[in-house]
Design a binder for these strands. Structure first.
Length: 254
DNA sequence: CTTCTTACA
DNA sequence: TGTAAGGA
C-alpha cells in the first residue's frame, strides 16, 4: 500500500504536475518546455499547485507520440493551432453541411433538349451543351439532358437572361473549376506535410489515424470558410471599383 | 517539507 | 534535457 497516487488521479481528471508527467510518459521538466513552446495550455493554478486536466493528458500523449515520430516541436505547434481553429469553426456554424456538400447530393434537373433551348433562348447553341457536358455540368442521354445541380442551373439561367452569353458563363465555370482545384490542392498539400508527414498512411497507428480523421473533418469547413471570406472581400472590392467607374462616366455632375 | 520556477550547463 | 538553487 505504498502508492495511492493513481486513485487520486484517476477520479476527477485532476492531475498534479508529476502525475500527468508519469501518466503521459514524459519527464516533468518537459511540461514547462511544451508550455513555453505553445504545445500545452497552462495548467489551472491553485496556490502553488498546478492542476492538469484530462485534456492536458491527452494532448501530452499526442505530443509525445508525434515527437517520437520525428515531428519537430514547431511543426506540432502549427498543427495544434490549425486543429483548434478548425474544430472551433466547424462547431460554430451549421455551414459545415453546406460547404462539404458536393454535386452528388444536390438536386439534379432532367429536361429535354427542347426544354433546354426554351430555358436559355437563342444564345445557347449545341456547342454550348457539348461544352457543359465536357465540364461535367450536364450529362446527355439521347434527347434527355440532366443538369447535376439545380442551383448552378438557376444561376446560369439568371446570368444568361441578364444578357451574358452562355458561352462566357461556361468559360467562367471552367475557370472557377480550375482555380478551385488549385485551392483544394493547396490545402491538401498543407495537410499532408504537417499532419500526415512523409511516412504515408500505411504505417500509422490506429489512434493517429483517428486523430487525422478528426483533423480532416475539422479542416474541411475551415478551408471553405477561408475561401468564402476571401471571395466575398475580393468581390466587394471589385464591385466597388466598377460602380465607382460607372458613376464617374455616367453622371459627371447634377 | 513540498511544489514549482529560474537559470545555467 | 539535467540539475542546483531559491521563492512561496
Amino acid at each position: 500500500m505504498s502508492s495511492q497516487v493513481d486513485q487520486d488521479a484517476a477520479v476527477g481528471g485532476h492531475y498534479r504536475r508529476d502525475e500527468v508527467a508519469r501518466a503521459a510518459g514524459v519527464k516533468v521538466r518537459n511540461l514547462r518546455y511544451y508550455q513555453e513552446r505553445g504545445l500545452l495550455p497552462p495548467p489551472r493554478r491553485e496556490g502553488r499547485i498546478a492542476w492538469y486536466s484530462e485534456d492536458h493528458l491527452t494532448r501530452l500523449r499526442l505530443i509525445n507520440d508525434l515527437l517520437g515520430r520525428g515531428y519537430t516541436v514547431n511543426g506540432i505547434a502549427e498543427l495544434l493551432a490549425a486543429w483548434e481553429q478548425g474544430g472551433g469553426l466547424s462547431q460554430l456554424l451549421g455551414l459545415e453541411r453546406e460547404m462539404t456538400r458536393d454535386w452528388e447530393q444536390e438536386d439534379s434537373v432532367v429536361m429535354s433538349r427542347a426544354e433546354l433551348r426554351e430555358l436559355f433562348g437563342p444564345t445557347a447553341s449545341p456547342e454550348d451543351t457539348r461544352r457543359a457536358a465536357e465540364l461535367g455540368y450536364v450529362t446527355i442521354d439521347g434527347d434527355l439532358v440532366t443538369h447535376r445541380s439545380r442551383r448552378l442551373l438557376e444561376a446560369t439561367v439568371t446570368l444568361v437572361r441578364a444578357g451574358v452569353p452562355l458561352a462566357e458563363v461556361l468559360d467562367a465555370g471552367d475557370f472557377v473549376q480550375t482555380q478551385a482545384a488549385a485551392v483544394a490542392d493547396r490545402f491538401v498539400a498543407l495537410f499532408s506535410t504537417h499532419v500526415i508527414g512523409t511516412d504515408g498512411l500505411e504505417q500509422l497507428s490506429a489512434t493517429r489515424l483517428q486523430h487525422i480523421t478528426e483533423a480532416v473533418s475539422a479542416l474541411r469547413p475551415l478551408a471553405g470558410e477561408v475561401v468564402a471570406t476571401e471571395f466575398a472581400r475580393a468581390m466587394a472590392r471589385r464591385v466597388d471599383a466598377e460602380v465607382a467607374g460607372l458613376l464617374r462616366t455616367e453622371s459627371p455632375g447634377t
